[in-house]
């Protein structure tokens, strides 16, 4: 499942996508995020799944635009975001990269 956490408002779309098929629940994403956006737990959107999965912390979902800003500085090239880099299965992606030169 592609779980899109975030929102869309007048200024743009701010979603962090977690591919739950790829996510193995290892928790490597928790530590590198300076704003503590990730958590590991049972899949709240798939009650029949028993394995743990990563999700964006509920309180953080509504302010991703601001929380992710330090990792996406304007005018500076960033190859990979800390959360993306930490995720070995490659389950995490962001919907907005407009300030990055990838």
């Amino acid at each position: 499942m592609l779980a899109n956490y975030g929102y869309k408002d007048g200024s743009g779309e701010y979603f962090i996508t977690i591919d739950t098929e790829k996510c193995n629940g290892c928790g490597a994403c928790i530590e590198p995020c300076p704003e503590h956006c990730f958590q590991i737990g049972s899949d709240e959107n798939d009650p029949l799944r028993d394995e743990p999965v990563a999700a964006v912390v509920p309180g953080q979902r509504q302010k991703l635009k601001y929380l992710c800003m330090p990792c996406k500085p304007a005018g500076r090239a960033v190859n990979k975001l800390p959360c993306e880099e930490a995720c070995t299965p490659g389950a995490i992606s962001h919907s907005w990269y407009h300030v990055l030169q990838r």
Partner: peptide, 12 residues
């Protein structure tokens, strides 16, 4: 009926 992808807007 199994979810493949979802997105939700609950901010606005």
């Amino acid at each position: 009926g199994k979810v493949e992808t979802f997105l939700m807007n609950d901010k606005c």
